[in-house]
Write a protein that binds this DNA or RNA. Structure first.
Lengths: 360, 360
DNA sequence: CTGAAAGCGCTTACAG
DNA sequence: CTGAAAGCGCTTACAG
């Protein structure tokens, strides 16, 4: 710290100092940058924080030194002074691994280069310390903000809590539950409608539906979208062909058994997600039914499992990763440089081999 | 800050102050605790850090105040003073979502109550900035340590880098690649051996094997364990029945097509993971082969997909979550209160319906 | 066993 | 447009 930079005009610094990425012992600090650039640390701070009140050549000099030394501000020190960290939390209770991983990848896409990091926090909405856990997590780490996915995102107690402790948040949900700046809306209704049009156009008249649990808003949205689309083709969604599942494989099996025991049975079943569709397919196969000749099956999500099943599953692909990216950008207040096209944010029907004309 | 605690002997504090979890405006700091407990902040610090050099009643008084106020030390301030954060990184390049999620859950199990949080960092081992990215991530956040999973965990460049920048790490791998205190070894060889015994005992003589890619050590371990087990029953693993896959569904399909085109074809195929086994099953089904009558298939992992396939897949269940928990505890140097039993740390064969006696 | 001083690397008022 | 002072909430030497 006794080394003084030589008084040149080029912003040179004493070559005996060794900062940054090349294996040096010590990381440069704001003081080093200030000294090398011959300004106060406050001015360096202004450059870091993109203050407009810095003269052009002063800024240039500082930026040169920053680049030269590989300086990066310490997030912990900055966080301490700012009274909040540079961490974004992902709070989720979704049981589907692929949803979680895709969401994480999307959020990370949005956070890239921002200096924020992602801290994951699975939780149990039914647990006794559910809200206290979330609160502790956020306050202890002074999180900059959190992303909430269904079904936690749909819990008003959580939204209230976050507002109360003044934690920024983005809710991802299939319905506009909150102010637009706090929401990313997924288009489940349109996605399910695509499934409805598909099955009606194939000629199905007796169509079954297995919904998710009422704790997920998407359960209702997908049902509504499916029903409306069928209606446009004059096909009813008869309540006797509707069952409430739980978005799990096992519930898909149980509901499919009930639906296929009806007389006459449905010629097609739309399951609220791929997991339940896998259950439907398993019941069909072990009952000796052929898909799609005897039963068409359509899922929702297009997770890996969809193409691994036999026959490969016709399903609705949800843009989870893109959604996560949008959520992250919105949360940290960064405008998207390469905003997704409408097609990229909308669910799309992926037709494989589990759906076809009825009967035969 | 002008409020002085009343001079009682019971450690009471001024009731007009409002800290902590009940919706108060301000969090208690170490200064508040020191004032209320009538000690210096340094002594409070000693209690926080479990220093043995605090007199019993002093400690009790401080702990009471801490409990009363709901005080929790600020990790950012502590981190700044300590020169390292209370964040653990998970660095991974495993493409299977369920592996990642299970690993995260396990690490979080181990971190619970420790004050550490988990920051996730997927990476691309083949990318141009692979090492620089990891380095930047760790140094910027001053991570307390990282957990590495295959195949990054098997990259010696990464281990060398971490040692150089003095970042604690735990490598999860199927071979003891490093000092024991830096390793959690998964028992892939035993798991694959179980698959070998199972198929040999069923009476299979022409047995196929699809390995993972050479970038994963588990590919070799699983092959070795399988081959050795078969040999114990006098069954050879003929190289002509062995193919190198990539741990992907598509590679499972490609390899299965080759193996089933042989004359005579194998009567059973052990795939290095469930994803590839799903590919094998799909090829079999669309070729009109019945499983297990015409072809037995065994996988490795027992991820959700295994029980969703048709027929449900016989596979080896790997204790990923338990492994993650052990890695976390080892990393933060906490002794396991409820250590897993040997059975919980060992892979186990799960027999479902995709395997049976050959021919028929 | 306990504490006063200095410091971790930044930022927020406040001046100029 | 720029800077000196004080502070964020902790810990590390150093004394006693």
């Amino acid at each position: 710290m006794t080394v003084t930079p030589p008084p040149t005009d080029h912003g040179d610094h004493d070559e005996s100092e060794d900062f940054g990425a090349s294996g040096g012992r010590r990381r440069a600090t704001i003081n080093d940058i200030a000294r090398l650039a011959r300004v106060s640390k406050k001015t360096v701070s202004r450059v870091i924080n993109r203050s407009p009140f810095v003269k052009g050549d002063t800024r240039a000099r500082i930026e040169a030194v920053i680049a030269q030394t590989g300086y990066a501000p310490d997030p912990q020190a900055r966080g301490l002074a700012f009274r909040r960290s540079f961490l974004i939390g992902l709070i989720y209770d979704n049981p589907t691994p692929q949803y979680v991983v895709n969401m994480q990848l999307g959020i990370l896409d949005g956070l890239k280069g921002s200096g924020f990091e992602l801290v994951v926090h699975p939780c149990d909405r039914a647990g006794p310390s559910f809200l206290a856990d979330i609160r502790g997590f956020i306050e202890r780490q002074r999180l900059a903000g959190v992303v909430l996915t269904p079904s936690v995102s749909e819990d008003e107690r959580v939204a209230k809590l976050l507002a109360q402790i003044e934690c920024d948040y983005i809710r991802i949900a299939s319905v506009e539950l909150d102010e637009p700046e706090r929401m990313i809306v997924s288009h489940d209704r349109q996605g399910a409608a695509a499934a409805g049009h598909h099955l009606a156009e194939l000629g199905h008249k007796r169509v079954g539906f297995i919904s998710g649990p009422p704790t997920f808003r998407s359960s209702f949205e997908r049902r509504a979208g499916f029903k409306t689309a069928l209606a446009e083709h004059g096909v009813p969604l008869d309540p006797k062909y509707v069952r409430e599942g739980a978005y799990t494989f096992e519930s898909g099996i149980a509901c499919a058994e009930q639906l296929l025991a009806l007389n006459p049975p449905p010629t097609a079943i739309f399951a609220g997600n791929d997991e339940m569709a896998a259950g439907v397919l398993q019941v069909a196969l072990r009952s000796g039914l052929r898909a799609p000749q005897d039963l068409s099956v359509v899922g929702f999500d297009d997770f890996q499992i969809a193409s691994r099943l036999w026959p490969p599953l016709t399903t609705v692909r949800a843009p989870t990763r893109v959604t996560g990216r949008m959520a992250a950008l919105k949360l940290i207040g960064v405008k998207d440089e390469t905003p997704p096209t409408p097609e990229e944010t909308l669910p799309v029907l992926v037709v494989r081999q589990s759906s076809g004309p009825p009967g035969r």
